[in-house]
Design a binder for these strands. Sequence first.
DNA 1: ACCTGAACACCGTTCAAGT
DNA 2: ACCTGAACACCGTTCAAGT
Lengths: 160, 160
Amino acid sequence: MALTVDTVADTALRILSDFGLGDLTMRRLARELGVQPSALYWHVADKQSLFVLLAERISAEAEAAARPAETDHSARILTFREVLLRYRESAEIVILAYSVSGAQVLPAGLRELEPGLREQIVAFVLGAVAVEQSRAMLARAPEPTAAQSFRAGLDALLGA
Amino acid sequence: MALTVDTVADTALRILSDFGLGDLTMRRLARELGVQPSALYWHVADKQSLFVLLAERISAEAEAAARPAETDHSARILTFREVLLRYRESAEIVILAYSVSGAQVLPAGLRELEPGLREQIVAFVLGAVAVEQSRAMLARAPEPTAAQSFRAGLDALLGA
DNA sequence: ACCTGAACACCGTTCAAGT
DNA sequence: ACCTGAACACCGTTCAAGT
């Protein structure tokens, strides 16, 4: 059956979480889908717009993972961080996608924030995750205090 | 005269600031230096270790730019942000280098901070600059409020 | 509408061999 | 010690042509 943009994005996300950004190439993606690389360009304009799709999916997952009981922003942001940490190098992708498309690539909990504060929180979350993921990629031991440090910074930014 | 690791790094930094990360390839770097690409590998182990050198130079520049009168951390961090903004995509490079080498790639003003707070500040600074630089790369208008928003977030983190 | 085949203009890295 | 030359195993993207 014919490829769809959804199967392309699903497969891309799987490569990302299993092998990382270095292995997420258009050629590799095509191979896993059993088509020629050029076939992908009928479904997505280029690699960058594929990244935007991936960022949207990751955000959607963060939204789905947020328990409805979580009424405060703090809990939702912590969930967003955890979902990001599931996908290697997702921070880099979301940075790009956020720059391209703005708040729409963020989970609802972050979209609602007043713009100035949102910008601060986005910088902090993506920066923190980017550093953590970069360390993980290099097979360096993760900072054991990363989660606590994140919480503390988040509280400071939220004025808690 | 023979190449040195310093001329390699200088030229790399010039390519980075003038043309961006996409143009900073080992082949292009070699071309500008008038040597074969393979010659570079006598001076640097690989591209990643070149990035660490670049991050160290950028931090050194931030240190040099900090006026000695600036006794508070806040002013030094603002200077670091400004120096980072001078080099396209420098945030990505410093994220990688900080993950590899830790605090030694940071300007002195940041190195002195107590580790938990330092980690928060680094995440915030690099995340904020990464988003700004990503927007600039896409030729999207910079957020006019970026500097104020950064200041506000920084004050919150520093408990000011 | 959807995909193939072939091409274009590139990459990072290694390593024998030269000087 | 420092560099060349040639190769290896890749990239993203375009576009005529096929079905």
